[in-house]
Structure formats: C-alpha cells, structure tokens
Amino acid sequence: MNASRSTPTTASAAGLAGTTPDLDRAIARLLAFGTYLAIGLLTLGVLLMAVAGQSPFSPTSFPSFDAARLPQDLAAGRAEGFLWLGLVTVIATPSARVIAALVGYARAGDRRMVAVSLGILAVIATSVAVGLLFSGSAT
C-alpha cells in the first residue's frame, strides 16, 4: 500500500506484484474442492426438486435461510436442505481461500499480507453481523 503516483515501485518494493507459486497451488486446489462440493450439493438439490415435482416459481414466497433447520432438511432428504447447503458452500469458499492464505502468509512471516487477510475476514464478519442484524427484514 505504499506505491505512489509519482514513483512507480518494483514488485518487491510494492509487495503487490510478486507471485507465490506454492501458496497459489494450494489455494487453487481448495477453490476446486469447494466448487465441486458446492455444485455436487446444488445438483443433488435440483434433482430432488425434479423428483418432488417442485417448480422454482410455484411457491409465491421462498423460504428464508435458517441454519437451525438445515440438519432436519438434510436428514429428511428435502431439496431445500441440499440447495441451502450448496449455496452456503458457494458463498463460504472464497472466505476459506482467505483463511488458507492467512495461514500461508503467517508461516512465511509476511506480516503485511497477514494484516490484509485479517482485514478481509473482518469485512466478511461484518457482513455476517449486518446480515444477522437485518435477518429476514426486507425483500
């Protein structure tokens, strides 16, 4: 964050342009795993919708996300359980990538990127707090 308009900085000085091959590979694997898991869950949810003859537009209002109901819906094999779990996996995968990067940068002693990672996670945590605060309050 120290580059300025008048003096363009090199990769090492700016700390932004350099690559981190090992960490990149580990994160790539994590992203692939999260994506395939999410798509698998969503596909299962869509198939259960089809089996149950559930149209996407037939209920006039769709159910809100309720984490407490998730285990029951999954155990009962209800489409919405798998759909919600798939959607949560989609949304959580990028945050898991940031946590993995945080661990990698901490091991490498890269304080700047540890601070950046923690900052991103703080913003995500704020989103969760804001979402919970206004939970189900408007559409």
């Binding site: 559930q54 995968t93 969760v128 189900g136």
Partner: peptide
C-alpha cells in the same frame, strides 16, 4: 469471489436469495 460473497451474505440473511432459482441457475452457469 470475495467481493460477491461479502454482499451475498447480506442477501442470504435478509431473505434475498431464492434457493429454488439460485440452485438451477448456478448449476447451469457452472
């Protein structure tokens, strides 16, 4: 990913994501 998830979390908790529509669309997009 992170940009969209920061706001998707708010949409999720505020009842702004329809799972019956989001599921088929996400599978199709993939």
């Amino acid at each position: 990913g992170i940009t969209a998830s920061a706001s998707a979390i708010i949409y999720l908790f505020r009842g702004g994501i329809d799972p019956y529509v989001a599921g088929p669309v996400a599978v199709g997009v993939f």
